[in-house]
Design a protein around this nucleic acid. Sequence first.
DNA 1: TTTTGTGAACTAGTTCACAGCT
DNA 2: AGCTGTGAACTAGTTCACAAAA
Lengths: 241, 241
Amino acid sequence: MVADGTRIRLKFRLVKRQHKEAPQSVVRETSEPVSELTTNRLSVYLRCLNLLDASGVRTVSSQALAEQFHLNAAQIRKDLAYFGEFGVRGVGYYVKELRRHLRQILGIDRGVSVVIMGAGNLGLALADYPGFRDEGFEIVAMFDTARDKVGHRSRAGVPIYDGRDLRKIVRQERIRIAVIAVPAAAAQSVVNTVVSSGIKAILNFSPGAIKVPDGVKLKSMDLTVSLESLSFFLAQGEDGT
Amino acid sequence: MVADGTRIRLKFRLVKRQHKEAPQSVVRETSEPVSELTTNRLSVYLRCLNLLDASGVRTVSSQALAEQFHLNAAQIRKDLAYFGEFGVRGVGYYVKELRRHLRQILGIDRGVSVVIMGAGNLGLALADYPGFRDEGFEIVAMFDTARDKVGHRSRAGVPIYDGRDLRKIVRQERIRIAVIAVPAAAAQSVVNTVVSSGIKAILNFSPGAIKVPDGVKLKSMDLTVSLESLSFFLAQGEDGT
DNA sequence: TTTTGTGAACTAGTTCACAGCT
DNA sequence: AGCTGTGAACTAGTTCACAAAA
């Protein structure tokens, strides 16, 4: 299940950065492969920078960042260097500037519209999860098939529509990402509907194998796999290691 | 954040398996490192076997398993071979038997008791998530500090206790795993409490860097990181790739 | 001097390919 | 003949270590 392994070839179209005396940092032309491990870390770095920015820190070296958040300094530098020369030798990185760059690279600088499929416990919880809106995601709508749910809203006000309205809303609201929070049995068919509505990125919370066509990115968070992984750890520790 | 990289050295204490004429498969003595990628896959294999078993399939080859669920046959064999010689050459694996072995390896063959910290939207949703109980996990209790929540139950009946009762319940109910579903700001301090109550495995849903002492396994599911990773994928596809 | 950006070295993880068992 | 278990080959990912920039 989930063989994934998607790789992205980057088209560097980063804007030329202006230094004081405008020595203009290199604009990359090369296509480079970026692994998902790297993009996940970019997201982590962004969270670190948010924290630093909030506490008034202006510049930070890869070393300092690594120590404070338990990362590896060389890896931070390498990850960032894929996307441009954001640092200043002898100084480090300007927090605000790097933060801005990361938001742009991650594509969240202009807001991303999201829908949630399934207005059950999990769907409703995700709809009102405050962390999303904070980072530039907007949960625009939820979809369900249950009559008694359609027409209502989540506590925070996310409206619940009939699944048949998906296509329309996706087009109207320029939805970019769908979150799958339906029972396992319905998951594949809901994913199919989502894909056919034109959505290209899916965050899946249902367990098991989901297939998507090429060009569609599926990311699965399998809660059972996670718990079982922890259970394995405990089972190993048990007999006197 | 989350430098993780925990590795487990296995103590093989697998029972000798009985063949027809009892040629007794090798009992491993070697300590081998097993990565989390491997344990995650074991969990995936288990789910596949559940499906096969439910549809009455008796034996399956690594090849067949790989094709049906989009995995790699050699990897399945290698993953399983870490833990013993479960296959029969010329035949494949006996579904029920392998399923039983995997459940034992993952430590879920006798049920695992779990608590959830935080009875907010997410905590309540996780408490009633049906996938957990199906696989041998029991959500025994939730903990919260809000007066109006303590004393109540989730819809499915999981009781909500005051955070101060954690230690007592962990001991009484032999809790093995804690799930963290509290706001980001409270996460580290709740994790500290959980650790001091003797829990050794934690599934964390709050964003950001959480520290745990050695010997405690922390697994984080960062929802924002996942969405941002999808957003990155979209941002790359955008400009004419 | 400090710190980046990066080739080179290393480590981890995956896949191949085949000897050997049933 | 069919399929496992596994060393060897390969690929991906991380960390080191240092030249070059500020």
